[in-house]
Structures are given as structure tokens and as C-alpha cells.
Design a protein around this nucleic acid. Structure first.
Lengths: 256, 256
DNA sequence: AGGTATTTGTTCGTATGTATC
DNA sequence: AGATACATACGAACAAATACC
């Protein structure tokens, strides 16, 4: 594999393509060191700047991470698997069917130490949330915001919204960690979650998210917006999680 | 506002910051032409390459669009959103994921004209696909690749992989559009899809995806990898869709 | 602890190509 | 056709961070 001057694509794009293929094929597995700029320069007979342009393309695709004085590496695969749902007959309910809220258990199951920093406030509902919870824009909601860590690495940002009159005075309004899980508390209040409605989108992070989650450049985030309904089919919670692409996979099992 | 050599940040980052602020403040509204590289070079007294590095940063953030011979502009706001899966009322059925294959119906339902360009080939299975289909790496699979459009706007890239001995000689190997849907054909072959296993990730697009999907810079893509299982719980298809963030929302309804 | 080599990051200069006006 | 503007590509030098002895 070499750079072909007759190829209509620019050299740096060709080179980016060659390296990308090596990553895809497994020839350069996640975590591997990429040859240095000088080595690539020799191997493909282009200038160092052209090598740099190629690597820049791959950095922007999120395939590589580089750091000054050390080198460049193929970015590692996501570690955290979210079994967001597990339904149905054949698989009955495995332990995977858990509220995302019970974050600690999922992290411990993966051999890591969970930590979270929570705040609770009462605020007017944002439009989108109000609509999901059948409220009028500006109605008060209780917001629990959490930054969640595994082994002191930030993993995700999770905000839960509850209609104020539903949870007023309950433990949910306590910013301390709720060990039994918020679902249990909702159930104690007479609202058992029976179904979820999930909307998944993805985008580039805001500067704030970037900081809080310590994101590498070119790391997009996923957004899972889950609405929970109780036994009367009333919406009782809207849960928004922001998930860095390099740390998560969402998994759904669905019956046809 | 000028570049300050004493500032610890590199010049191109400073310049990117200055221009970014002008965009944020509305001084450079969406759609406005950005000064040419040569003008910026004079105004801020840096080299043209440094100006280019700054503009590159902003292009990667999605704030600018440039085109050769014409100039650079502040990017205008995005367009339409497409629900990759539509949900109606609440039902037990997980209608979240009707087959994405029945692409045409969904598009027509939104008053748009569907179109798709398909190719079919037989190729060795990539590692990840082989694993999902219970094959050995390198085993042959049939690959149906589609670029799907709505009103001549590209919406998504969808590749289906089938074990070769399962579909050999069937209509699936015909690159013509399969009007009844590939699920129907699989059923005719004695394999009824009964459950799906979905994995969702997101990342930055490759240059090729960017071109095929006509993506604006800094538009991340979602990737849905769906494995279908038949009545004997044998994997019969792996389906990979690449979905631009500005055109899709994934929706799942899940029973607790 | 200290110094040197290595490696990526920044910045300039320069030339040429290609698309657009 | 000519001018303008962005794109590609090379060379060069130095800075900054890291690794190694």
C-alpha cells in the first residue's frame, strides 16, 4: 500500500484512508501505538506536514488520540455497555433489566468503583421536559443532576426531572445518594414504573459538558431521554443522560 | 482585539477564539461571509497558514463552511429531522423499531419522495459482523449496501449482511429494490425474524460518509447495528445503519 | 536528579493546484 | 482570460512534553 500520485484524492486523504483501513481491519487494534510521524513520512514518502494532515483527519474522526512528546494511539473501544432494555419471553428478566439509576451496581459489575456527585433543585420545566411530563411550560419540577464516575473517571451526566407535586417532601428531594434507587421511592409513593419511552440523539458536546466529562477533542456525545410511565400510564419521570461516545454502547433487545 | 504573543495559547487558537466570539455575539451572523484568509492575515498580522489553522478549528466545530474559490461562511442552522422509527400510541408491541428496511413507507408518510441506490456483493465477513452472525472471520457473506434518500437528500447508509448459504440464489442477492422487504424474503426462506439485538454507538463520520451523506462539518453520526434472529434463535441478518445526527432520532418503547 | 534524544505541536515561508467570479 | 480565493504540499526551524539513560 502506497500513496498514488495519480489518485485524484489528495495525498493526506489517501494516507488517512490507508491508516483507517488498518484500524478497521484490526491490523492496528484499539490501544496500539501508531508509527511516529517520521516513520510514516519515510514509509509513505511524503512530507511530515502531509503525514500530520492525515493524522489530523483521523483525530477529527475520533479514531486517534495523540499527545505531545509521546505519540499517537488508536482510540480504545467503549467500555461501558448499557443494557438499556431487556424484554421478552426467551430472555425473561436477567439482572440486566435495571434502572439506569442504579448506576452503582452496573459499575461494580464491571469491576470498577462508582462515585457520583448529586445536586437537587426545584426549577421551571424546560419546554421539552414539560411536554414529556404533561406539564405546562414553566411548571415547577424537581431536578436531580448527577455527574457519575467510575474509578474517578467521569462517565456520564444524568439529570432526572419529576413533577413537583408528585415527589414533594420525599427522599427524592434529598441530594444525598438514594441507595435503594429512585424507582423504589417512586413505587413507595404509589407510582410503579411500567414502561419507558426512549429517544436517542447524538451531537457535539457543549464546552461545559466537555469540561465536566473531560472529553478528548472530536468526541461526540449521545443523549438518551427516557420518560417513565406508571401503572396509570401517567408520566412520572423524565431522565436525560449525556454519554460520551468513547465510553458507551447502548444495547436494546427487542421482540418482533 | 489582536493576537497576543504573551498569551500562552497558540496563535491559531487565539484567532479561532476571536472569530468564534464574533460568531457567538452575532457580529458575524449565520450566513455571513467570513473575511478572506489574506484579509485575516493582514488584520491579525499572522501567516496565512496560521489563519488556515484557526479556520480549520472552526470548521471542525461546525461553525464555518468553506468552499474552494469562493470563500468561507458562518454556517446556517440545520434543516429537518427524520424519525428513524415512529411510535404511535402506546401498545405492548415495540413499534419503536419497525423495520428500517421499509424505508419507503416512512418517507412517504412524511410527504417526501423516497429513493435508494443499492449494490449487492459477496465478500468476506468483517470481524465484528462474523461474530454477530456466528461465523468465522473470513466466511463469505452477502452484503446489500444502500444509500437512502428523501426528496433527493441523502438520509442514511444501510448495509445488510447475510450468511451466504442462507440466502444464496434468493431475491436478496438481486441488487434491484426488494419491494416486499427483505424480512418477507427471509420468511419465505423459512427464517422468520422474531427478535432483534440492537447496539447503538456514535462517532465522527469518515470523509467518505461525509461525502455520501453530504454532511456539514462537525456532524456526528449514529450507528445502529441490529442483529436479527429467527424462530430457532439463529442469527440471520446483521444490519448496520449510519445516521447523521441532524436528520434522525431513534425511538424505543420498552416495557418494564 | 539531570541531560539528551524522541515525538508531537506551532509557525513561518513558498510554490502550485483548482474552483469560482 | 485574468484575478481571486481556498486547497494541497513541501521545507524548515523552534517549542513543549515526554521518555530514557
Amino acid at each position: 500500500m502506497t500513496i498514488n500520485p495519480a489518485d485524484p484524492r489528495p495525498r493526506y486523504q489517501q494516507l488517512a484512508g490507508l491508516i483507517r483501513d488498518q484500524i478497521r481491519s484490526g491490523e492496528l487494534p484499539p490501544g496500539t501505538r501508531v508509527p511516529t510521524e517520521v516513520e510514516l513520512r519515510k514509509r509513505y514518502d511524503v512530507s511530515r506536514n502531509t503525514v500530520r494532515d492525515a493524522l489530523e483527519v483521523l483525530r477529527n474522526e475520533g479514531l486517534l488520540i495523540s499527545s505531545q512528546g509521546r505519540g499517537a494511539w488508536v482510540r480504545a473501544e467503549p467500555q461501558m455497555r448499557y443494557h438499556a432494555s431487556l424484554t421478552g419471553s426467551r430472555t425473561k428478566r436477567l439482572e440486566a433489566e435495571r434502572r439506569l439509576d442504579t448506576f452503582g451496581q452496573q459499575i461494580r459489575a464491571q469491576g470498577k468503583v462508582p462515585k457520583q456527585v448529586s445536586t437537587v433543585e426545584v426549577a421551571p420545566a424546560p419546554v421539552e421536559i414539560a411536554r414529556l411530563l404533561n406539564l405546562t411550560e414553566g411548571d415547577q419540577v424537581v431536578v436531580r443532576r448527577r455527574v457519575q464516575f467510575a474509578d474517578d473517571e467521569p462517565l456520564q451526566l444524568g439529570d432526572s426531572y419529576y413533577p413537583l407535586d408528585l415527589v414533594q417532601g420525599s427522599k427524592i428531594m434529598d441530594s444525598a445518594d438514594v441507595l435503594e434507587g429512585t424507582d423504589q421511592i417512586l413505587e413507595d409513593l404509589g407510582h410503579t414504573p411500567t414502561r419507558y419511552h426512549d429517544q436517542i440523539t447524538w451531537r457535539m458536546p457543549t464546552a461545559e459538558e466537555s469540561t465536566k466529562l473531560r472529553l478528548a477533542p472530536a468526541t461526540p456525545v449521545g443523549r438518551l431521554l427516557r420518560t417513565s410511565y406508571d401503572q396509570h400510564d401517567q408520566p412520572i419521570e423524565a431522565y436525560e443522560v449525556v454519554l460520551p461516545s468513547d465510553r458507551h454502547v447502548l444495547v436494546y433487545d427487542v421482540d418482533a
